[in-house]
Simulated assay, not measured.
Amino acid sequence: MTDADRLTLQLSTGGDVVIKLRPDLAPGHVERITELANSGFYDGVVFHRVIPGFMAQGGDPTGTGFHGSDKPNLKAEFSDESHRRGVASMARAQNPDSANSQFFIVTDDSPFLDRQYTVWGEVESGMEYVDALPVGEPPREPGKIVKASVGKAAA
């Protein structure tokens, strides 16, 4: 995997969110995100928790926030990377080693999350489509990932 890998999330809010993957920070999490995205796992999955001025969370195939993939949970890969606007990080339960498939995109700087959640990417373009996601926990009519895929960045 090279530094050029990107996760593209085609959102129901009208466009693509392109996330630069950071295997230098979280190789295991990047591998999981890549595997799930390329298998179609995230296609049609909703953002079940969208809090204005904080973050948008998705990645649960049931849309409830209580489930993940059938793969084993991941060991935490915490780093010193700050949770600033546009950072993609893994959601987890209380146990630090409980991340699975759920992730969130930070919509406002949230340094209180630093060194407690695994940062695995950063949005390069398309934050306006994240900002446009319907808000709520859960939203009445949640926004969703139409299609997710991982590939090389255009040269």
Rank of each mutant, 00 (worst) to 15 (best):
A88S: 14
E128D: 14
D80R: 12
S69R: 06
F112S: 10
N95E: 09
D80I: 00
G14F: 04
L21K: 14
S101D: 07
K71Q: 11
G53S: 02
D80S: 12
D131T: 03
I105R: 10
V45I: 15
V130E: 05
V119Y: 01
Q116S: 11
L9S: 07
D3K: 15
R92E: 01
E128L: 09
A154G: 15
A154I: 15
G86S: 00
V130I: 15
P52A: 08
K71D: 06
R22L: 09
S89C: 06
V87E: 02
V135P: 00
V18Y: 12
L25R: 09
K147A: 14
V119D: 00
I33W: 02
K147V: 13
Q57S: 01
S101R: 01
E31R: 14
S12P: 10
V119A: 04
G68P: 01
H67V: 04
L133K: 05
T64F: 07
G65N: 13
A56F: 13
F54Y: 13
R49S: 03
D70Q: 13
R32C: 02
H83P: 00
P27M: 05
A155V: 06
P142D: 13
L36M: 10
S69D: 04
A154Q: 15
V135N: 00
S39Y: 02
Q94K: 14
N100K: 00
T64R: 09
E81Y: 15
A56Y: 13
M1P: 14
G44Y: 05
K20N: 14
V18A: 14
D16E: 15
D109R: 06
T34S: 12
D109W: 07
M90C: 01
N100A: 11
P96C: 09
F104C: 04
R84E: 12
T2K: 15
L21S: 03
Y42R: 03
A148H: 06
G68V: 04
R92Y: 05
S79I: 08
S12E: 04
E137P: 02
K152T: 14
N95P: 04
